[in-house]
Design a protein around this nucleic acid. Structure first.
Lengths: 304, 304
DNA sequence: CCAAGAACATGAGCTAATGTCATGATAAAT
DNA sequence: ATTTATCATGACATTAGCTCATGTTCTTGG
């Protein structure tokens, strides 16, 4: 019997273009997908896609099932959502804080989408609190915090949203601009621009420079991403940012980006929530929506 | 994650009205369904139906999922059907013979429905053959035979369709008419009307009278069911027929029906096909359609 | 009102489906 | 030709999902 699992796999496969990446998206191994699809194909008595091409090419049978998936999965999700809504009549509250300074880009579409489906949930991003957001979460002053560095805190659960790559933004004519990636030593006599937060919470240091024992010549801070970009573009320094925070500047050819370290510098973005709110139907829905929206809106990120 | 399995279960549950019978329909145990649904309910965080009532009553969440199932399952079946059709381009042939004389009632809707979906399969019920249909099946003169007594024959596979109960039709004012069921001895001085086939192929004898060593006073035969009903109604005998062959006469209050033996006399109706044709996509579809249609059209039958 | 019968729940245990891991084959890229 | 990426495959592991046996609860009929 065909199951929804199979349909979800096919969609992931189409979106990803390869088994390996599709496997990541559905949080299984490549092997599992290979077996799963092979099994399905055997039962149906036909191949569903051609593996030799990149991206994979679907056979007619495969296309038919894809179409089926497109019809069916949204219906199922709507159904689940309705059921969830039938349960939690108590109007929910979703007050959130955003640690990472440039998340609005993908968070806003998420919120818009969410608001349509859960009109009764009160959403807010209270501005200008100067307290530490994670304790405030535990204190129930906040309900969700977007953060890149989870710290163990009783009652707080960190739901991974996605992984992203940190890139080094440099001026277009910078000496490093044509490199595929930089080594820690390359930053030894550069000015590094960061957000004004503790050293320990910046991945460039913890993951990249500190392990190599390298310190940049100078460190200066800036509050806003645009500001940083101006400094970088005018050659007054370099700065490490998530790939998706940079795309708009890269598209406009305002700065260049190079990889950080040979393997790249990857971090995970988390949604921190209280344990109890974890099973709230609208919370589950929000997290799912957030993940979906981010994959739709952002490029070059990977499932956590 | 919700799966199609769950939706299929819910539909079965609604149609059946109780877990026990729903379990039969999906060919699982009552326990399995209980676990399955409990698990689903836990994950959704709400009950789906009230178990105390008969038939079971669905909660709002349950109703929503039922609606979902009604939307989704037909789509899935159409998808599967299309895929199956994409494979088997070779035009199929489906020539069938019907052993049991009063099957047209449910077979016709099946054929109609099937013809819409598989226009390229040539369907026929060749009439008036006087040869034995099962050997003809092996000889590839026929492709499907509806029969109630499977006989081991190499290369022939018997797919069970459903189980039905044999009932004894008696005149309205007959002395047995008010009984819940008859014992073998009750027939000792009755005239029994049967189809004109070998003794060994009539369940009344093999399952009921022979084991008890009872012979009816007289046996007479009739070709057609209507004929039998006329004889029965006018008090010239009694006859054993499948429950579904009788319903139309019962509804019109033309005859009465009583059970045969305390436990009832149950037989299974089979579709006999050749081993090889068993995996033909349209054959699978025909059998499924046949089973579905029969459950929709007939009452008082059970899954095999 | 009690005994017997249905129908559902539940826990233990088993099996088979469905994963992972390690590795090999194949094709594309350098 | 070598490296790198992707997919296939077999052996093993895990676990979801089933059956079996039994308990609980509600209904029915004597």
């Amino acid at each position: 019997m065909i199951e929804l699992r199979h349909l979800r796999t096919l969609i992931a496969l189409r979106d990803a273009g390869s088994l390996v990446e599709a496997a990541e998206r559905v949080h299984l191994t490549q092997s599992a997908l290979s077996h799963q699809i092979k099994d399905l194909e055997e039962r149906l008595g036909t191949a569903l896609f051609v593996r030799k091409t990149r991206p994979v090419e679907f056979t007619r049978a495969g296309q038919r099932l894809l179409a089926l998936a497109e019809q069916v999965l949204p219906l199922v999700r709507m159904g689940e959502r309705d059921v969830a809504r039938l349960i939690g009549h108590e109007p929910g509250r979703l007050h959130m804080a955003i640690e990472c300074h440039s998340c609005f880009q993908w968070l806003m579409p998420t919120i818009d989408h969410f608001r349509d489906h859960w009109p009764e949930v009160e959403i807010d991003i209270p501005g200008g609190h100067h307290f530490d957001p994670l304790p405030a979460l535990a204190r129930e002053q906040l309900d969700l915090v977007i953060t890149a560095d989870p710290q163990p805190l009783s009652g707080v659960y960190y739901e991974p949203l996605f992984r992203y790559q940190g890139l080094l933004a440099v001026a277009r004519q910078h000496r490093l601009a044509e490199r595929a990636f930089v080594a820690p030593e390359d930053l030894a006599d550069e000015t590094l621009i960061t957000y004004p937060v503790e050293h320990a919470r910046l991945d460039v240091f913890t993951q990249f420079l500190d392990p190599a024992g390298v310190r940049p010549r100078e460190i200066r801070t800036a509050e806003l991403t645009v500001m940083m970009m101006q400094l970088v573009a005018s050659g007054r320094g370099v700065c490490a940012l998530p790939n998706w925070a940079l795309t708009e500047y890269l598209e406009r050819d305002y700065v260049k980006a190079v990889g950080i370290g040979e393997a790249g510098m990857w971090s995970t973005l988390y949604a921190a929530i209280r344990e109890e709110s974890r099973e709230q139907p609208w919370m589950e829905d929000f997290l799912r929506t957030a993940r979906e929206t981010s994959f739709a809106v952002l490029e070059g990120i990977k499932p956590a």
